[in-house]
């Protein structure tokens, strides 16, 4: 088990290094006009050159990358080229909002989708058709289009929820709840439908397995068979899709945050990339990828716990 975790961590680190290098290269080619962008149209040629040297833009790619990587290893991601705010603090003030949004959505999806999927698999009939139909509708409507619809109906027309929020990490719980409800719903619908579909087919597959019949023949109550045995074996399929959903959501949330004007990572990502603020972009990418790697590791661990065969090999 320990070697399994170590292996996973090692592969996570290799992914992290590869992605940082790749992103850095991409940004290197985009950094031609950065000094000019920072100083504005009216700065003189000399001022621009001085700025370029101050930012170290004249030095070769690898030198810059290793310098950045070295600092990053010590937890120093530099400061934003435009606002001079330290990257770490810029991200940590915005991360809670994004993470709340994503984690609340994922947890809701996991619970509702599992119940719906199980119900659809076991009861069949109308609930099954409902889940199947909802999966198609959920897949058909991109979450940001749904968000736009939600905003126009519930915020602009009915005025039940604020259209744009003004929360910060230290706002009260009620302000959070009011601001988060619509965005979470926008993220939920699509996820619930598709994960419920996955759980449904995984449960149906398990119910057809021989061991379920044998458990029934042993006089084990049906609820115990469903929730202890069938769900346990069906869960990995759902978990894998859930982790993919999570990765997708970390990206998709960028648009949602823009629609609801939430001051999360999304705004930061859009700003920093459109201006070419290399330290900030690197910070955003790195934080996101680290979160993804941690989530993948967690999923692997849970799968290992659920399935003893994985644990052994």
């Amino acid at each position: 088990m320990v070697s399994f975790i170590l292996k996973r961590i090692a592969s996570g680190i290799s992914v992290l290094v590869a992605i940082s290098f790749f992103t850095y290269c991409l940004l290197y080619f985009s950094s031609a006009n950065i000094a000019r962008n920072i100083l504005g149209e009216y700065a003189s040629q000399e001022q621009v050159q001085a700025k370029e040297i101050a930012l170290g833009l004249h030095r070769p790619l690898l030198t810059r990358f290793f310098e950045w990587a070295g600092n990053a290893l010590h937890g120093d991601f530099g400061v934003s080229w435009f606002t001079s705010e330290p990257v770490v603090s810029a991200i940590t003030t915005r991360l809670p909002i994004t993470l709340t949004l994503v984690i609340v959505s994922i947890v809701c999806i996991a619970i509702v989708a599992t119940l719906l999927g199980m119900a659809a698999a076991v009861k069949r009939g109308w609930i099954d058709r409902l889940v199947q139909g909802a999966a198609v509708v959920g897949d058909a409507i991109p979450d940001f289009v749904l968000a736009i619809v939600l905003v126009s109906v519930f915020a602009i027309t009915l005025k039940i929820f604020p259209a744009t929020s003004s929360i910060s990490p230290d706002s009260g719980a009620d302000a959070w709840a009011a601001s988060m409800t619509l965005p979470v719903i926008a993220l939920l619908i699509n996820g619930i439908a598709s994960i419920a579909q996955q759980i449904r087919s995984a449960v149906i597959k398990q119910l057809e397995r021989d061991y379920v019949r044998t458990l029934r023949s042993r006089g084990i109550p049906e609820w115990e068979i469903l929730f202890k045995h069938v769900l346990r074996s069906a869960a990995p399929a759902g978990l894998t899709v859930l982790s993919l959903k999570f990765v997708g959501m970390l990206g998709g949330v960028v648009i949602i945050e823009q629609i609801f004007a939430l001051p999360g990572m999304g705004a930061l990502a859009v700003q920093s990339t459109s201006m070419g603020d290399i330290p900030l972009v690197m910070g955003v990418v790195l934080y996101t990828v680290i979160i993804v790697i941690i989530v993948n590791l967690l999923v692997d661990l849970i799968n290992g716990w659920l399935n003893p065969k994985v644990r052994v090999s």
Binding site: L27, G251, V281
Partner: peptide, 17 residues
């Protein structure tokens, strides 16, 4: 590697570059 990348963030970076 590719599957650990959040799509939109990559696309934002690509657009920047």
């Amino acid at each position: 590697v590719l599957m650990s990348l959040p799509g939109i963030i990559v696309l934002l970076t690509v657009r920047a570059a």
